[in-house]
């Protein structure tokens, strides 16, 4: 839901917009700032200049803000792109207390596919099923040294060759709710239904992408994205959700950096 709202609203904003009050910055090596007011607005392509400005004004008044910090350390970038080779993006799921969400991995994959249609990004679940049982939480390689052990299995090595797998990207992290407060009461009567109250909750995402070069069997980069934001839900008869797209922003931030790394066009 939040991704959907984010997609609707993002095109209305240009980079460099000031963060609204209440959004704190943290000093990091490399930083992206995004202010994303997640309310439903009409498709900007259909808006005139005035209505666009009006929408921005309404958004600015009702926005739930998201702060994003991205750190990147990559090397051996494929300057000519990856050609007809393929990439797989997978989530880490071996920790007992959290697991990287499947839809987050799908979101990053879609982001890269949209950004450069020449890049073949394999679907995570299809890949895990094709390679069963070698990429289950219990058996997935944790270090690049483990690639050799995998390739000892002839059928596994043959499958990698068939897939032309060049890069394996591991995403580790999750999105959690950090706080919540407020209350809301809803009622139904003969004359109609309605809600009254106010709720607010915070979300924080913390993800790290590790890029493995499969041909050279070495790690060639790490990118991390930390985002946080506060969502609000005031209700006077009708509840109005003002959602901070925390996970969607993390997806776009990581997706952008990975796209820059993999694509020769960007």
């Amino acid at each position: 839901m939040s991704n959907f709202l984010y997609d609707l609203v993002t095109p209305l904003f240009t980079p460099g917009i000031d963060l609204p009050s209440g959004c704190e910055e943290t000093p990091r090596a490399q930083r992206q700032r995004e202010s994303v007011p997640p309310i439903r607005v009409p498709n900007p392509s259909r808006l005139g200049h005035r209505s666009g400005l009006l929408a921005i004004t309404i958004c600015a008044a009702l926005q739930g803000c998201v702060t994003a910090t991205v750190d990147e350390m990559t090397f051996m970038e494929p300057t000519e792109g990856i050609g007809d080779a393929s990439v797989v993006i997978m989530g880490r799921r071996h920790a007992p207390d959290y697991e990287t969400e499947f839809d987050f991995i799908e979101c990053i994959g879609d982001h890269i596919r949209r950004g450069d249609t020449s890049i073949t990004v394999l679907h995570e679940l299809d890949f895990i099923n094709m390679m069963y049982p070698w990429f289950e939480p219990r058996t997935a390689p944790l270090r690049t040294d483990d690639i050799d052990k995998l390739l000892d299995h002839q059928r596994v090595a043959e499958r990698f060759t068939e897939l032309k797998l060049e890069y394996m990207i591991w995403i580790d992290g999750s999105t959690v709710e950090t706080n919540s407060s407020g209350s809301m009461t809803c009622g139904v009567g003969p004359g109609g239904a309605g809600c009254f109250g106010f709720g607010t909750w915070g979300n924080a995402s913390d993800y790290e992408a590790t890029i493995w070069d499969f041909t050279d069997e070495r790690e060639v980069g790490r990118i991390s994205a930390n985002t946080s934001g506060q969502s609000y839900m005031p209700a006077v008869v009708v509840p109005i959700p003002i959602i901070a797209p925390v996970q969607g922003t993390a997806c776009d931030s990581l997706g952008d950096q990975l796209l820059k790394y993999l694509s020769a066009k960007i």
Binding site: Y132, P133, E136, P137, R138, T139
Partner: peptide, 10 residues
């Protein structure tokens, strides 16, 4: 079940 299979197979 998948985990059991992975454990058994390896």
């Amino acid at each position: 079940l998948r985990d059991a299979g992975a454990n058994f197979a390896t």
